[in-house]
Design a protein around this nucleic acid. Structure first.
Lengths: 351, 351
DNA sequence: CTGAAAGCGCTTACAG
DNA sequence: CTGAAAGCGCTTACAG
């Protein structure tokens, strides 16, 4: 009965290999999986037959019976010139090393993330790594309750049993304010992102808090996008201000804003850092280039990716024999990693 | 018998949904797949039960029986600040729109690509899109012979039955030479990549050919990496030349080289384009920034990605009822798409 | 060390 | 319109 598959494909199976090597189909499976006893020479015979035929185990079928596929769902967004490309790149490399297959879910906009999270379920992955958008509590519960892991990178996971790790954005923000205040800057400006950007908000909050500790109340400019274009627009806006009311230090909550801001100031008389200091966040490759040399924060990407992979492996262990300790998150469930200040030429720091 | 799966997972299946909705398991399948007759109200009942239980079809199991998973393998490399990130981003978006699931294979170095191509097989994807490294003929044959598609993006597929689409790098190179020669430049220099970079080589060849047509023999500097650092090194090397022997026009075979080259010249007396014109390739976001405004070529990424997706869908059609026409490739089996010149400030073009 | 058989969670003819 | 049953390609106890 059932003859669903396209007949042209003529799928070859372990049975064909078994026939060619003159063994049972079960032995072929054992030869490739490495589980169960098998004589060295029959294994060789099987390998040879498989190589000739061009067969290798069907991972989909194997997953079916073992109930576990080495698959990890990864949620991303637009990668173009973004910190996200670096995140994904590191993640992919780590997965490759651990023999984990990433199944990618691409959100064009953050609102799609919840839907993608739902679609993720169909593939019965080990779990999902979220690098974009917001994780809803109910969705997190749906994932975790089936025994999958849920790891949020640079965002809260909004669930006690999920794993969340992020750059300590508040700390970075505080640090930026300290650097600027220590230079003697008095009129601070924050170039922030949209209200729903968790990272930008945290950086801003940290910055404002530390500034207030010094008795300074920073001004905050919000931007719909955290892009170089938006940074340029901020520069133009700043240039329209009277010299007296003009900020003398700017904290760009990401480097794209900061780089655009620098470019926006080029045709003006304002010098950096003579008239105005600038600190960014992300340490994009371009931030090190000659025309910018932007003082900025590097996010501890390696640390975070390693921790995510660690969580994935722990999760598997505990699945198998309920064991393993977990890193200790902070009160909001997120593990925070300190960013590192890279002092370059847009601040007066003693470099 | 066989109790392989971790008992804690307690997997829920369509059978559980069937029980809850008081129907046969087959009906649950029909409700979700949309295949076969089913009364509207029982379908609703099934959906409700499934939603309550939190079940959705196991795509792995479905793939097993239909013999077809909506999976596409994608081979990439390091994404950091590269044109590749843009390629991947566009590809992912197109897949998402067509409900194709990308399974990513990440090569840290190009030499790993062949191995990854082999690993691809286990997952019984519809086929594989290669955006890094070299496709070996035998490997291509192995993939195609199982009825999978093979699509190479910006590289030859080295197989008649494979699909290959690329920017017309030779044409771009020719065009670059024409632009520079038309400016009256006489001493041309090419900043090339490593010998095994197909794109860089093609661009160089086109450039050299067109230059020779004008009676000019360009100099060629090869670089191990096509990075900003390498571009900077080229600038330093150029500055060491005597003014008489110095090139008056440079073709950087990618923008990274070009941007680094510009930065490397900043501290010198040489002006661009007064003393020396520069043309790049890729049109990176940074190439449009104020300190660079690099004249460069934009690759027809949308066109190429659309063509790849078109090929994937054609492949499926022909799998199903042996039909469909194919685009017409050039003699070497590659479909070439012309790049578009973006004139900015590093050439004297009439802009 | 090896083979026969059950079963993973589905989909799809085939009968009602 | 619905259900019982076969089968997708594997892996793994269970017997030899």
């Amino acid at each position: 009965m059932t003859r669903p598959r396209s007949d042209k494909l003529n799928t070859i199976t372990s049975r064909d290999v078994a026939r060619a090597a003159n063994v049972s189909q079960a032995l072929v499976s054992r030869a490739f999986s490495g589980n169960g006893r098998i004589a060295a020479d029959t294994r060789e015979r099987i390998f040879k037959a498989a190589a000739e035929i061009g067969w290798q185990p069907n991972a989909l079928a194997a997953s079916m019976v073992t109930g576990d596929a080495p698959l990890v769902a990864v949620i991303t967004t637009r990668l173009s010139f973004d910190w996200r490309a670096q995140v994904l790149s590191h993640l992919l490399k780590a997965f490759e090393e651990r023999h984990l297959q990433p199944l990618l879910f691409h959100a064009e906009r953050d609102e799609e993330v919840d839907r993608l999270l739902a679609e993720t379920i169909s593939w019965r992955t080990r779990g999902v790594v979220v690098t974009a958008g917001v994780v809803q509590k109910a969705r997190a519960e749906a994932i975790l309750s089936r025994g999958q892991f849920l790891a949020a990178l640079n965002r809260p996971a909004n669930h006690e049993r999920a794993f969340a790790i992020a750059t300590d954005n508040r700390l970075g923000g505080r640090h930026a304010a300290t650097v600027l205040a220590d230079e003697g800057r008095q009129r601070l400006l924050v170039l922030a992102g949209p209200a729903d950007s968790w990272a930008s908000r945290s950086r801003t909050e940290g910055f404002v808090a530390a500034a207030r500790d010094r008795g300074i109340e920073p001004e905050i400019w919000c931007n719909d996008a955290m892009s170089t274009d938006a940074g340029g627009a901020c520069a133009r806006r700043l240039l329209e201000l009277s010299a007296a009311g003009r900020p003398d230090a700017v904290f760009a909550t990401n480097d794209a804003l900061g780089l655009g801001f620098i470019d926006g100031l080029r045709s003006s008389a304002l010098g950096i850092p003579s008239d105005l200091s600038l600190v960014g966040f992300d340490n994009l490759p371009a931030s090190a280039w000659a025309p910018y040399r932007l003082t900025t924060f590097e996010q501890p990407l390696d640390t975070m990716v390693a921790a995510v992979v660690g969580h994935i492996e722990n999760h598997r262990q505990s699945e198998l024999h309920m064991a393993s300790p977990v890193p200790t998150p902070s009160a909001d469930g997120v593990i925070y990693c300190p960013p590192q200040l890279i002092v370059r030429n847009t601040t007066r720091g003693q470099k």
